[in-house]
Design a binder for these strands. Structure first.
Lengths: 170, 170
DNA sequence: AACAACCGGTTGCATTTTAAAATCAGTTTG
DNA sequence: CAAACTGATTTTAAAATGCAACCGGTTGTT
Protein backbone atom coordinates (compact mmCIF):
# COMPACT_ATOMS: atom_id res chain seq x y z
CA UNK A 1 0.00 0.00 0.00
CA UNK A 2 3.06 2.21 -0.16
CA UNK A 3 2.44 3.74 3.23
CA UNK A 4 6.07 4.82 3.19
CA UNK A 5 5.12 8.25 1.90
CA UNK A 6 1.84 8.74 3.73
CA UNK A 7 -0.18 8.00 0.62
CA UNK A 8 -2.88 5.41 0.21
CA UNK A 9 -1.48 4.36 -3.14
CA UNK A 10 0.57 5.58 -6.06
CA UNK A 11 -2.36 5.62 -8.46
CA UNK A 12 -2.58 9.02 -10.15
CA UNK A 13 -6.35 9.14 -9.70
CA UNK A 14 -5.95 8.38 -6.02
CA UNK A 15 -3.24 10.98 -5.57
CA UNK A 16 -5.40 13.59 -7.28
CA UNK A 17 -8.26 12.60 -5.02
CA UNK A 18 -6.08 12.88 -1.93
CA UNK A 19 -5.29 16.44 -2.94
CA UNK A 20 -8.67 17.60 -4.24
CA UNK A 21 -11.19 14.98 -3.15
CA UNK A 22 -13.19 16.89 -0.59
CA UNK A 23 -16.24 19.07 -0.66
CA UNK A 24 -14.51 22.44 -0.76
CA UNK A 25 -11.11 22.50 -2.48
CA UNK A 26 -12.45 22.56 -6.01
CA UNK A 27 -15.15 25.05 -5.04
CA UNK A 28 -12.42 27.46 -3.95
CA UNK A 29 -10.46 26.91 -7.15
CA UNK A 30 -13.63 27.34 -9.19
CA UNK A 31 -14.30 30.71 -7.56
CA UNK A 32 -10.75 31.92 -8.12
CA UNK A 33 -10.81 30.66 -11.71
CA UNK A 34 -14.28 31.61 -12.93
CA UNK A 35 -15.21 34.32 -10.45
CA UNK A 36 -11.77 35.89 -10.21
CA UNK A 37 -12.02 36.02 -6.43
CA UNK A 38 -8.57 36.82 -5.18
CA UNK A 39 -9.01 37.74 -1.49
CA UNK A 40 -10.14 35.85 1.57
CA UNK A 41 -13.23 37.99 2.10
CA UNK A 42 -14.25 37.76 -1.51
CA UNK A 43 -14.08 34.00 -1.37
CA UNK A 44 -15.85 33.96 1.98
CA UNK A 45 -18.77 36.32 1.52
CA UNK A 46 -19.45 36.04 -2.18
CA UNK A 47 -19.43 32.26 -2.00
CA UNK A 48 -22.60 30.83 -3.48
CA UNK A 49 -22.27 27.81 -1.22
CA UNK A 50 -21.51 29.59 2.05
CA UNK A 51 -18.14 28.20 3.06
CA UNK A 52 -17.23 28.70 6.72
CA UNK A 53 -14.27 30.93 7.48
CA UNK A 54 -12.24 28.27 9.27
CA UNK A 55 -12.77 25.82 6.43
CA UNK A 56 -11.78 28.45 3.89
CA UNK A 57 -8.65 29.32 5.87
CA UNK A 58 -7.72 25.66 6.08
CA UNK A 59 -8.31 25.00 2.39
CA UNK A 60 -6.37 28.05 1.29
CA UNK A 61 -3.46 26.94 3.42
CA UNK A 62 -3.54 23.41 2.06
CA UNK A 63 -3.96 24.54 -1.54
CA UNK A 64 -0.95 26.83 -1.19
CA UNK A 65 1.06 24.02 0.41
CA UNK A 66 0.15 21.70 -2.43
CA UNK A 67 1.09 24.22 -5.08
CA UNK A 68 -2.42 24.82 -6.37
CA UNK A 69 -2.56 28.41 -5.25
CA UNK A 70 0.08 31.02 -4.59
CA UNK A 71 -0.25 33.70 -1.98
CA UNK A 72 1.35 37.15 -2.05
CA UNK A 73 0.80 40.22 0.09
CA UNK A 74 -1.39 42.90 -1.39
CA UNK A 75 0.71 46.08 -1.53
CA UNK A 76 -2.39 48.24 -1.11
CA UNK A 77 -3.29 46.80 2.28
CA UNK A 78 -0.90 45.30 4.78
CA UNK A 79 -3.31 42.57 5.81
CA UNK A 80 -4.63 41.65 2.43
CA UNK A 81 -3.37 38.61 0.63
CA UNK A 82 -3.79 37.91 -3.05
CA UNK A 83 -4.36 34.33 -4.05
CA UNK A 84 -3.47 33.28 -7.58
CA UNK A 85 -3.79 30.13 -9.59
CA UNK A 86 -0.64 28.23 -10.47
CA UNK A 87 0.11 26.34 -13.65
CA UNK A 88 -1.03 23.18 -11.87
CA UNK A 89 -4.45 24.57 -10.98
CA UNK A 90 -4.85 26.27 -14.36
CA UNK A 91 -4.47 22.81 -15.83
CA UNK A 92 -7.46 21.71 -13.77
CA UNK A 93 -9.67 23.64 -16.15
CA UNK A 94 -10.46 20.66 -18.42
CA UNK A 95 -11.38 18.70 -15.30
CA UNK A 96 -13.74 21.42 -14.10
CA UNK A 97 -15.18 21.77 -17.59
CA UNK A 98 -15.92 18.06 -17.66
CA UNK A 99 -17.31 18.19 -14.18
CA UNK A 100 -19.64 20.99 -15.20
CA UNK A 101 -20.69 19.09 -18.31
CA UNK A 102 -21.37 15.94 -16.33
CA UNK A 103 -23.28 17.85 -13.67
CA UNK A 104 -25.35 19.54 -16.29
CA UNK A 105 -26.40 16.17 -17.67
CA UNK A 106 -26.80 14.16 -14.51
CA UNK A 107 -27.90 16.57 -11.81
CA UNK A 108 -30.53 19.30 -11.69
CA UNK A 109 -28.53 22.50 -11.87
CA UNK A 110 -30.03 25.96 -12.07
CA UNK A 111 -30.13 27.43 -15.55
CA UNK A 112 -28.24 30.59 -14.65
CA UNK A 113 -25.39 28.74 -13.02
CA UNK A 114 -25.22 26.22 -15.87
CA UNK A 115 -24.70 28.58 -18.73
CA UNK A 116 -20.94 28.78 -18.19
CA UNK A 117 -20.66 25.00 -18.16
CA UNK A 118 -22.76 24.79 -21.29
CA UNK A 119 -20.65 27.32 -23.15
CA UNK A 120 -17.46 25.68 -22.01
CA UNK A 121 -18.69 22.29 -23.14
CA UNK A 122 -19.72 23.58 -26.55
CA UNK A 123 -16.46 25.48 -26.93
CA UNK A 124 -14.47 22.30 -26.38
CA UNK A 125 -10.70 22.00 -26.03
CA UNK A 126 -10.08 25.02 -28.26
CA UNK A 127 -11.99 27.24 -25.89
CA UNK A 128 -10.31 25.60 -22.90
CA UNK A 129 -6.89 26.36 -24.31
CA UNK A 130 -7.86 29.97 -24.91
CA UNK A 131 -9.21 30.20 -21.37
CA UNK A 132 -6.06 28.67 -19.91
CA UNK A 133 -3.98 31.20 -21.81
CA UNK A 134 -6.10 33.95 -20.36
CA UNK A 135 -5.72 32.50 -16.86
CA UNK A 136 -1.95 32.43 -17.32
CA UNK A 137 -2.12 36.10 -18.19
CA UNK A 138 -4.27 36.96 -15.18
CA UNK A 139 -2.53 34.79 -12.60
CA UNK A 140 0.99 34.23 -13.89
CA UNK A 141 1.60 37.49 -15.71
CA UNK A 142 2.18 36.11 -19.17
CA UNK A 143 1.30 38.13 -22.23
CA UNK A 144 -2.32 39.14 -22.71
CA UNK A 145 -4.07 36.91 -25.20
CA UNK A 146 -6.43 38.28 -27.85
CA UNK A 147 -9.49 36.35 -26.71
CA UNK A 148 -11.17 36.77 -23.33
CA UNK A 149 -13.15 33.65 -22.52
CA UNK A 150 -13.87 35.02 -19.07
CA UNK A 151 -15.67 37.97 -20.65
CA UNK A 152 -17.60 35.63 -22.94
CA UNK A 153 -18.71 33.50 -20.01
CA UNK A 154 -19.66 36.47 -17.92
CA UNK A 155 -21.63 38.06 -20.75
CA UNK A 156 -23.56 34.86 -21.29
CA UNK A 157 -24.25 34.55 -17.58
CA UNK A 158 -25.50 38.11 -17.31
CA UNK A 159 -27.68 37.62 -20.34
CA UNK A 160 -29.39 34.65 -18.73
CA UNK A 161 -29.84 36.46 -15.45
CA UNK A 162 -31.29 39.47 -17.24
CA UNK A 163 -33.66 37.29 -19.19
CA UNK A 164 -35.02 35.85 -15.97
CA UNK A 165 -35.22 39.27 -14.35
CA UNK A 166 -32.62 39.83 -11.63
CA UNK A 167 -31.77 36.98 -9.29
CA UNK A 168 -28.27 37.83 -8.17
CA UNK A 169 -25.51 40.18 -9.26
CA UNK A 170 -22.94 37.52 -9.93
CA UNK B 1 -28.27 29.50 -1.54
CA UNK B 2 -31.25 27.43 -2.63
CA UNK B 3 -31.46 25.57 0.63
CA UNK B 4 -34.96 24.54 -0.39
CA UNK B 5 -33.71 21.28 -1.85
CA UNK B 6 -30.91 20.51 0.60
CA UNK B 7 -28.26 21.64 -1.84
CA UNK B 8 -25.58 24.22 -1.29
CA UNK B 9 -26.17 25.72 -4.73
CA UNK B 10 -27.45 24.88 -8.17
CA UNK B 11 -24.01 25.12 -9.77
CA UNK B 12 -23.36 21.96 -11.78
CA UNK B 13 -19.80 21.74 -10.48
CA UNK B 14 -21.07 22.02 -6.93
CA UNK B 15 -23.78 19.42 -7.46
CA UNK B 16 -21.23 17.03 -8.91
CA UNK B 17 -18.99 17.67 -5.93
CA UNK B 18 -21.84 17.06 -3.51
CA UNK B 19 -22.33 13.67 -5.11
CA UNK B 20 -18.72 12.61 -5.69
CA UNK B 21 -16.58 15.02 -3.67
CA UNK B 22 -15.25 12.75 -0.99
CA UNK B 23 -12.23 10.54 -0.62
CA UNK B 24 -13.81 7.24 -1.60
CA UNK B 25 -16.70 7.48 -4.06
CA UNK B 26 -14.56 7.87 -7.16
CA UNK B 27 -12.12 5.22 -5.93
CA UNK B 28 -14.98 2.75 -5.83
CA UNK B 29 -16.16 3.74 -9.30
CA UNK B 30 -12.60 3.53 -10.58
CA UNK B 31 -12.27 -0.05 -9.30
CA UNK B 32 -15.55 -1.11 -10.84
CA UNK B 33 -14.68 0.60 -14.10
CA UNK B 34 -11.01 -0.23 -14.61
CA UNK B 35 -10.63 -3.26 -12.37
CA UNK B 36 -14.02 -4.78 -13.15
CA UNK B 37 -14.66 -5.44 -9.45
CA UNK B 38 -18.29 -6.32 -9.19
CA UNK B 39 -18.71 -7.76 -5.68
CA UNK B 40 -18.41 -6.32 -2.19
CA UNK B 41 -15.51 -8.57 -1.21
CA UNK B 42 -13.63 -7.85 -4.41
CA UNK B 43 -13.89 -4.14 -3.83
CA UNK B 44 -12.95 -4.57 -0.20
CA UNK B 45 -10.00 -6.90 -0.25
CA UNK B 46 -8.44 -6.13 -3.60
CA UNK B 47 -8.56 -2.42 -2.93
CA UNK B 48 -5.17 -0.82 -3.42
CA UNK B 49 -6.08 1.89 -0.94
CA UNK B 50 -7.56 -0.30 1.79
CA UNK B 51 -11.09 0.98 2.17
CA UNK B 52 -12.85 -0.02 5.41
CA UNK B 53 -15.85 -2.30 5.12
CA UNK B 54 -18.27 0.10 6.76
CA UNK B 55 -17.16 2.94 4.51
CA UNK B 56 -17.45 0.72 1.45
CA UNK B 57 -20.94 -0.37 2.50
CA UNK B 58 -21.94 3.24 2.99
CA UNK B 59 -20.52 4.37 -0.35
CA UNK B 60 -22.10 1.53 -2.28
CA UNK B 61 -25.44 2.39 -0.76
CA UNK B 62 -25.09 6.06 -1.59
CA UNK B 63 -23.83 5.43 -5.10
CA UNK B 64 -26.80 3.15 -5.78
CA UNK B 65 -29.18 5.75 -4.34
CA UNK B 66 -27.65 8.43 -6.56
CA UNK B 67 -27.91 6.29 -9.66
CA UNK B 68 -24.17 5.82 -10.16
CA UNK B 69 -24.24 2.09 -9.52
CA UNK B 70 -26.92 -0.55 -9.81
CA UNK B 71 -27.16 -3.58 -7.59
CA UNK B 72 -28.65 -6.95 -8.52
CA UNK B 73 -28.54 -10.35 -6.85
CA UNK B 74 -26.04 -12.80 -8.26
CA UNK B 75 -28.02 -15.84 -9.47
CA UNK B 76 -25.03 -18.10 -8.88
CA UNK B 77 -24.87 -17.35 -5.16
CA UNK B 78 -27.79 -16.34 -3.00
CA UNK B 79 -25.73 -13.95 -0.93
CA UNK B 80 -23.77 -12.32 -3.69
CA UNK B 81 -24.66 -8.94 -5.07
CA UNK B 82 -23.41 -7.65 -8.40
CA UNK B 83 -22.68 -3.98 -8.74
CA UNK B 84 -22.74 -2.44 -12.18
CA UNK B 85 -22.01 0.95 -13.64
CA UNK B 86 -24.88 3.00 -14.98
CA UNK B 87 -24.89 5.29 -17.97
CA UNK B 88 -24.25 8.19 -15.58
CA UNK B 89 -21.12 6.63 -14.11
CA UNK B 90 -19.91 5.38 -17.49
CA UNK B 91 -19.99 9.02 -18.55
CA UNK B 92 -17.59 9.79 -15.72
CA UNK B 93 -14.84 8.16 -17.74
CA UNK B 94 -13.60 11.39 -19.37
CA UNK B 95 -13.45 12.92 -15.90
CA UNK B 96 -11.41 10.03 -14.55
CA UNK B 97 -9.18 10.10 -17.62
CA UNK B 98 -8.49 13.78 -17.03
CA UNK B 99 -7.95 13.17 -13.37
CA UNK B 100 -5.40 10.50 -14.19
CA UNK B 101 -3.68 12.75 -16.69
CA UNK B 102 -3.52 15.61 -14.22
CA UNK B 103 -2.27 13.35 -11.46
CA UNK B 104 0.40 11.97 -13.73
CA UNK B 105 1.70 15.47 -14.38
CA UNK B 106 1.32 17.05 -10.98
CA UNK B 107 1.78 14.28 -8.44
CA UNK B 108 4.34 11.52 -8.04
CA UNK B 109 2.47 8.40 -9.11
CA UNK B 110 4.00 4.95 -9.38
CA UNK B 111 4.95 3.95 -12.89
CA UNK B 112 2.95 0.73 -12.89
CA UNK B 113 -0.23 2.41 -11.75
CA UNK B 114 0.26 5.28 -14.21
CA UNK B 115 0.43 3.31 -17.38
CA UNK B 116 -3.34 3.12 -17.79
CA UNK B 117 -3.67 6.85 -17.33
CA UNK B 118 -0.90 7.45 -19.82
CA UNK B 119 -2.48 5.21 -22.43
CA UNK B 120 -5.88 6.76 -21.86
CA UNK B 121 -4.46 10.23 -22.24
CA UNK B 122 -2.64 9.38 -25.44
CA UNK B 123 -5.69 7.59 -26.81
CA UNK B 124 -7.78 10.71 -26.33
CA UNK B 125 -11.55 11.04 -26.83
CA UNK B 126 -11.58 8.34 -29.52
CA UNK B 127 -10.26 5.80 -27.08
CA UNK B 128 -12.61 7.07 -24.37
CA UNK B 129 -15.59 6.56 -26.63
CA UNK B 130 -14.46 3.05 -27.44
CA UNK B 131 -13.99 2.34 -23.74
CA UNK B 132 -17.40 3.71 -22.88
CA UNK B 133 -18.95 1.49 -25.52
CA UNK B 134 -17.19 -1.46 -23.98
CA UNK B 135 -18.40 -0.48 -20.51
CA UNK B 136 -21.96 -0.29 -21.83
CA UNK B 137 -21.52 -3.81 -23.10
CA UNK B 138 -20.13 -5.09 -19.81
CA UNK B 139 -22.46 -3.25 -17.45
CA UNK B 140 -25.59 -2.48 -19.44
CA UNK B 141 -25.70 -5.46 -21.75
CA UNK B 142 -25.48 -3.63 -25.04
CA UNK B 143 -23.88 -5.22 -28.05
CA UNK B 144 -20.24 -6.23 -27.81
CA UNK B 145 -17.99 -3.73 -29.51
CA UNK B 146 -15.05 -4.78 -31.69
CA UNK B 147 -12.39 -3.07 -29.64
CA UNK B 148 -11.52 -3.96 -26.04
CA UNK B 149 -9.83 -1.01 -24.41
CA UNK B 150 -9.93 -2.82 -21.09
CA UNK B 151 -7.76 -5.58 -22.56
CA UNK B 152 -5.37 -3.00 -24.01
CA UNK B 153 -5.02 -1.28 -20.65
CA UNK B 154 -4.56 -4.52 -18.80
CA UNK B 155 -1.96 -5.77 -21.26
CA UNK B 156 0.02 -2.56 -20.92
CA UNK B 157 -0.20 -2.76 -17.14
CA UNK B 158 0.99 -6.35 -17.05
CA UNK B 159 3.84 -5.51 -19.40
CA UNK B 160 5.08 -2.78 -17.06
CA UNK B 161 4.76 -5.02 -14.03
CA UNK B 162 6.63 -7.81 -15.80
CA UNK B 163 9.38 -5.42 -16.85
CA UNK B 164 9.92 -4.44 -13.23
CA UNK B 165 9.77 -8.04 -12.08
CA UNK B 166 6.59 -8.88 -10.21
CA UNK B 167 5.18 -6.33 -7.81
CA UNK B 168 1.52 -7.22 -7.72
CA UNK B 169 -0.82 -9.50 -9.62
CA UNK B 170 -3.71 -7.02 -9.71
C1' DA C 1 -23.33 -34.74 8.27
C1' DA C 2 -19.65 -31.88 9.67
C1' DC C 3 -16.79 -28.12 8.86
C1' DA C 4 -14.25 -24.42 6.99
C1' DA C 5 -14.32 -20.84 3.88
C1' DC C 6 -16.88 -17.27 1.90
C1' DC C 7 -20.95 -13.94 1.38
C1' DG C 8 -22.43 -8.89 2.06
C1' DG C 9 -22.55 -6.48 5.29
C1' DT C 10 -23.25 -4.59 10.79
C1' DT C 11 -21.73 -3.12 15.34
C1' DG C 12 -19.17 -0.62 18.75
C1' DC C 13 -15.67 2.46 19.66
C1' DA C 14 -11.70 5.72 19.21
C1' DT C 15 -9.81 9.09 16.31
C1' DT C 16 -10.02 12.56 12.83
C1' DT C 17 -12.29 15.84 10.09
C1' DT C 18 -15.72 19.23 9.35
C1' DA C 19 -19.23 22.87 10.58
C1' DA C 20 -21.02 27.05 12.71
C1' DA C 21 -20.54 30.96 15.42
C1' DA C 22 -18.14 34.00 18.02
C1' DT C 23 -14.06 36.34 18.53
C1' DC C 24 -9.44 38.62 17.59
C1' DA C 25 -5.73 41.96 16.70
C1' DG C 26 -3.93 44.81 13.18
C1' DT C 27 -5.26 48.22 9.26
C1' DT C 28 -7.57 51.43 6.90
C1' DT C 29 -11.10 54.88 6.33
C1' DG C 30 -14.05 58.64 7.67
C1' DC D 1 -10.84 58.48 17.63
C1' DA D 2 -14.23 55.31 16.16
C1' DA D 3 -16.21 52.28 12.88
C1' DA D 4 -15.59 49.12 9.40
C1' DC D 5 -12.71 45.78 7.26
C1' DT D 6 -8.66 42.56 6.93
C1' DG D 7 -7.24 37.45 7.23
C1' DA D 8 -7.72 34.63 10.12
C1' DT D 9 -8.19 31.73 15.12
C1' DT D 10 -10.88 29.82 18.97
C1' DT D 11 -14.53 27.22 20.85
C1' DT D 12 -17.87 23.83 20.74
C1' DA D 13 -20.47 20.44 18.56
C1' DA D 14 -21.51 17.20 14.94
C1' DA D 15 -20.25 14.11 11.39
C1' DA D 16 -17.03 11.17 8.89
C1' DT D 17 -13.49 7.81 9.07
C1' DG D 18 -10.62 3.91 10.63
C1' DC D 19 -10.30 -0.34 12.91
C1' DA D 20 -11.41 -4.78 14.56
C1' DA D 21 -14.58 -7.94 15.80
C1' DC D 22 -18.62 -10.06 14.64
C1' DC D 23 -23.10 -11.89 12.21
C1' DG D 24 -26.41 -15.18 10.11
C1' DG D 25 -26.70 -17.49 6.00
C1' DT D 26 -24.49 -20.07 1.88
C1' DT D 27 -21.31 -22.81 -0.40
C1' DG D 28 -17.84 -26.27 -1.41
C1' DT D 29 -15.13 -30.02 0.65
C1' DT D 30 -14.52 -34.07 3.11
Amino acid sequence: MDASHGHRSGCPINLTLEMLGDRWSLIVIRDVMFGNRRHFRELLSRSEEGIASNVLADRLKRLVQNGLLSRVDDPSHKQKAIYSLTEASIELLPLLAHMGAWGRRHTKPSEALSIRAELLEKGGPDMWDAFMDELRFIHLGTERPARSVLAELQAAYLAVVARHSGEKTN
